[in-house]
Simulated assay, not measured.
Amino acid sequence: MTSASRREIFKRSVLVFVFFWFFFGSLAHFLFTRAEAGIVPTYIPFHRLDVYVSGVLEMLGAIGVLFKRARSWAGIGLFLLTIAVTPANIHMAMHWRSYPEVSPWILNARLVFQVIFLAGIWWSTGASKYYAPFYKGKH
């Protein structure tokens, strides 16, 4: 097996992980709405609505990565959505005493995972092809 084919298998595996993460994560927004709304920082209004909207966006993004024509755009959307929910994750890590059911090390590890996961979303969905001209100085 060539290194290119191993890389393609790994890329496909990351893409499958991205799909499952967001597909099942989106379901949690509707099945466990109260818990999901409970992690939204207090300075962000409309907690339930935010949970429902982000759940719909996660579901659309997960479905989008399944289709080659939509994959890059879905990847960009999921990348931006992941950044948009980062304040909730940071809030939980900073106020870990308010979340006794979750170990503080998990809350902090999630922030590290999120950075790695963002790279995985970007790479596996091919979202970088829309950024490449800017990156290479070809605006």
Rank of each mutant, 00 (worst) to 15 (best):
M1L: 13
T2Q: 08
S5C: 00
S5P: 02
R6L: 14
R7V: 06
R7G: 08
I9T: 13
I9W: 04
K11M: 08
R12Y: 05
S13G: 08
S13I: 01
V14Y: 07
V16K: 06
F17I: 12
F19G: 08
F19R: 00
F19H: 05
F20L: 15
W21E: 12
W21V: 11
F22Q: 01
F23C: 04
F24Q: 03
G25L: 02
S26E: 11
S26L: 07
L27R: 02
A28H: 02
H29R: 09
L31Y: 05
L31C: 07
T33A: 14
A35K: 13
E36D: 09
E36I: 13
A37K: 06
A37D: 06
G38Y: 09
I39M: 01
V40N: 07
T42N: 09
Y43S: 08
Y43L: 12
H47L: 08
H47A: 11
H47D: 10
H47Y: 04
R48S: 14
R48E: 15
V51F: 07
V51K: 01
V53F: 06
G55K: 00
L57F: 10
L57G: 08
E58H: 10
M59H: 07
G61A: 03
G61N: 03
A62T: 00
I63E: 06
G64M: 05
V65P: 00
L66R: 00
K68Q: 15
R69F: 12
A70K: 05
A70T: 15
R71P: 03
S72F: 07
S72Q: 13
G75A: 03
I76S: 00
G77I: 04
F79I: 06
L80Q: 01
L81K: 10
L81A: 06
T82A: 03
T82I: 11
I83Q: 04
P87K: 07
A88C: 08
H91S: 15
M92T: 04
A93R: 10
M94V: 13
M94G: 14
H95C: 04
Y99A: 09
Y99K: 04
P100A: 11
E101L: 10
E101P: 02
V102C: 05
V102L: 11
P104L: 11
P104T: 08
P104V: 02
L107W: 07
N108G: 14
A109S: 09
R110I: 09
R110S: 10
L111E: 01
V112M: 02
V112I: 14
F113C: 04
F113I: 09
I116C: 12
I116R: 09
F117R: 04
L118F: 01
L118D: 01
L118R: 03
L118K: 00
L118C: 11
A119K: 10
G120K: 04
W122V: 14
T125Q: 07
A127V: 02
A127D: 07
S128N: 14
S128H: 14
Y131R: 13
A132Q: 13
A132E: 13
P133C: 01
F134N: 03
F134L: 15
F134Y: 15
Y135T: 13
Y135C: 11
K136C: 11
K138Y: 11
K138C: 10
H139C: 13
